[in-house]
Lab assay of single mutants.
Amino acid sequence: DRYEFNINGVHFTIDDAEEELIKLIEELLKRGARAEEIEEVIRRWER
């Protein structure tokens, strides 16, 4: 599934997002994580 979200006006799209990654990102968003922090999480996840 495609997952899309915005952080401070920056648009992100993840194709074939796994449910666990989506939950992790949503938790980070609730905590007010910065875009750079979430980008790093996504990079690590994709390795």
Rank of each mutant, 00 (worst) to 15 (best):
N8T: 06
E37H: 07
K30M: 12
D1M: 12
H11Y: 13
W45E: 01
E18M: 02
A17T: 08
E39A: 13
Y3F: 11
E40T: 05
E18F: 03
E19R: 07
A17G: 08
L29V: 10
K23R: 13
V41F: 12
E27R: 10
A33F: 04
I38E: 00
A17M: 06
R2M: 10
T13M: 12
I38K: 00
D1P: 12
L29E: 03
K30L: 12
V41G: 02
E40F: 04
F5T: 04
L28R: 06
R34D: 15
G9K: 02
I25V: 10
E26Q: 14
R43H: 14
A35N: 07
E39K: 10
A35R: 13
E46C: 00
R44N: 15
E18L: 04
G32Q: 09
R31K: 15
H11S: 12
I25C: 01
E37A: 05
E37T: 07
I7W: 06
A33K: 04
R31S: 14
N6M: 12
I22C: 02
L21G: 00
I7L: 09
R44K: 14
G32I: 00
E18A: 10
E46H: 07
A33C: 03
W45N: 01
R34P: 14
N8W: 06
I7Q: 04
G9R: 01
L29H: 04
E26S: 09
G32V: 02
E36N: 06
A35F: 10
E26L: 09
R34H: 14
R2L: 08
E27A: 12
V41D: 01
Y3G: 04
D15T: 10
N6F: 13
I38L: 06
D16Q: 11
W45M: 01
E36P: 09
N8M: 08
A17N: 07
N8Q: 13
E18P: 14
E37M: 05
I14W: 03
K23G: 11
H11W: 14
T13A: 13
E39P: 00
I38G: 00
G9L: 04
L24M: 12
E19C: 15
A33I: 05
I22H: 03
D1R: 13
R47N: 15
R31T: 12
L28G: 06
E18S: 09
L24V: 14
D15P: 12
I42R: 03
E19Q: 11
F12L: 07
E36Q: 08
E20G: 13
V41P: 00
I42Y: 04
G9N: 08
Y3P: 03
E19N: 10
V41L: 10
R43W: 07
Y3H: 07
E19M: 09
K23W: 11
I22D: 01
I38W: 01
R2I: 10
K23T: 11
W45I: 01
K23S: 12
I42H: 01
E19K: 10
F12H: 05
E37W: 03
I25S: 00
Y3N: 03
E37C: 02
L21A: 01
I25P: 00
I38D: 00
F5H: 02
F12M: 09
I22F: 05
L29K: 07
F5G: 03
G32R: 00
R43Y: 06
A35M: 11
V41Q: 07
E26F: 07
V10T: 10
D1N: 14
W45R: 00
A35V: 14
I22G: 03
R31G: 10
L28C: 05
E26V: 10
K23N: 12
R47I: 15
H11C: 14
L21C: 01
E26T: 07
V10M: 12
I14N: 01
H11Q: 14
E4S: 07
D16P: 13
E26M: 10
E39Y: 07
E40A: 05
E40R: 03
D15W: 10
D16I: 13
I7F: 06
R43L: 15
D1Y: 09
E4H: 08
D1F: 12
I38N: 00
E36Y: 06
E18R: 05
R47G: 15
R47D: 15
D16G: 14
G32D: 09
R43G: 06
R2N: 09
T13N: 07
E36G: 07
E18G: 06
F5R: 00
L21R: 01
G9D: 11
L29S: 05
H11I: 12
A33L: 04
A33N: 03
R31L: 13
A17F: 06
R43F: 06
R43I: 09
I42M: 04
F5A: 04
E46K: 06
I14R: 02
E46A: 03
D15I: 13
E26D: 10
E46L: 09
E4T: 07
N6T: 14
F5L: 08
G9F: 04
V10R: 06
V10A: 08
R44T: 15
G9V: 03
R31V: 12
E27L: 13
Y3K: 04
L24W: 05
G9C: 02
A17V: 06
L29G: 03
